[in-house]
Design a protein around this nucleic acid. Structure first.
Length: 110
RNA sequence: CGAGUAAGCUGAACAACGGCGGGCGCAGUGCCGCAAGGCCGCGUCUGAGGAAAGUCCGGGCUUCAUAGGGCAGGAUAGCUGCUAACGGCAGCCGAAGGCGACUUUAGGGAAAGUGCAACAGAGAUAUACCGCCGGCCUUAGGCCGGUAAGGGUGGAAAGGCGAGGUAAGAGCUCACCGGCACGGCGGCGACGCCGUGGCCCUGCAAACCCUAUCUGAAGCAACACCUCAUAAGGGGGCAUUAUGCGGCUGCCCGCCGCGUCCCCGGGUUGGUGGCAGGAGCGCAACUGGCAACAGGGCGCCAAGAUAGAUCGUUGUUCUCGACAGAACCCGGCUUACAGGCUUAGUCGCAUU
RNA sequence: GGAGAAGUACUCAAGUUGGUGACGAGGCGCCCCUGCUAAGGGCGUAGGUCGGGUAACCGGCGCGAGGGUUCGAGUCCCUCCUUCUCCG
């Protein structure tokens, strides 16, 4: 299934006000419950990371990691992933591992 | 073989599985909707660059009056051509550099006018400090006059250099060179060559300026349409129907509209078009032209997103992969860039 | 995506018909005042880098970076870099 993406600034601000649920050198994750019963995901790549090419690279890596993780996460939450400087240099597996760690409390219980 | 010059091309490839944007088709008639239609599924085609970048120029397109008049402002600056246009490109001219192939060049006007040239120096657009020469007074020396050859200062000192000439000197005279003016010849032209003349004219216009040419402004967050709205209310300033205010435009004219501006308050920040068949791309042994380019022929349609699509894993190969991501579209310029390839000249050495 | 503005020492900053040696303030160092500190007062360094000198000191380069015009650029022109602001 396709995830609805967050695009409005106030939607991002709602998550930024909370504490990050996971922090690592390659990824920062924010999470909040919504009442829609579906996933909504936003990706932030700031200008600090680099030019357009580096930011596109970081977005693709994060999006691929989310694609492999999505089926294990309980629906009904908003997530925001923030790329950091090292995200453009590392491999997808590193980001994938960091994301699994950050989202472990939200996994579907067996 | 070595060194060096110029121009151009390219910008890792392949396979499997999974994933993403767009177009087209099919299907269940599964879900939503009154409907148009949308979502889900399958198949198929297609999917970033030479700079997509910087936003430095030019144009298309759109709105503002139908884009109008004048001033101010801005831009360009050898000539001829090319182009939709340009500050771009091509060829040529002049100047500078290089043994050479070749490269670089904002390169109009300083006798239209104004301004600036600090410090140093006697003097900076006009000059006599030292010196040289002559005359007078005459002890050293002083005074008057002539002189720009020599010294010194400076980025720049009154064309350069040699000879004649002179009291000493000086384009004062002469030869050559340089600059200027006039005439002739060649060239579409910039300009070049030749002849004659006299020697009054420093530099800076990327200082003001003059001359010639061009120039209305804003920009796809433009703009058009649909929907919801921009409300109601409160406070304050200006104005009292135009000699006012707002818009087109920095100012004046002209035109259009009419109460207007600020704060509080509360609300909206959705959708569709614009949007990709265009000054389009590719090919060649076509025609004209030195070339830029123009004309014709054949073939092709090739991203169109809207938080923004090209990726992940595995395997193989090589030269081990740089700079880097379309956002309305084109033509240039500039800047960044691992490597690889091609073509055409030049110089040196060796051999024939 | 588009339209603009700025950059001068550690910080805030002045610098116009282009002219010597780049004002100033905070800061910093030393001294005085105090039992000690803060505040206050006085003096000083100007800061960086390269070269020379035992030292005092002298010279060159430096105004975001690189070129150009000029005898001479913080200033004028061109190209880049960085930061900030605005855009129903």
């Amino acid at each position: 299934m396709r995830a609805i993406s967050l695009n409005k600034n106030y939607q991002f601000q709602r998550l930024y006000r909370k504490k990050a649920v996971g922090v690592s050198p390659v990824l920062v994750t924010y999470a909040a419950k919504n009442r829609l019963g579906i996933h909504r995901v936003g990706i932030t790549t700031t200008k600090k990371i680099g030019k357009a090419h580096q930011r596109n690279r970081a977005r693709r890596i994060i999006r691929e990691a989310w694609r492999l993780t999505e089926h294990r996460v309980q629906p009904g939450y908003d997530f925001v992933f923030v790329a950091r400087g090292r995200t453009t240099l590392c491999s997808m597996q590193e980001v994938h591992r960091a994301m699994q760690k950050h989202l472990a409390p939200y996994f579907i219980k067996p």
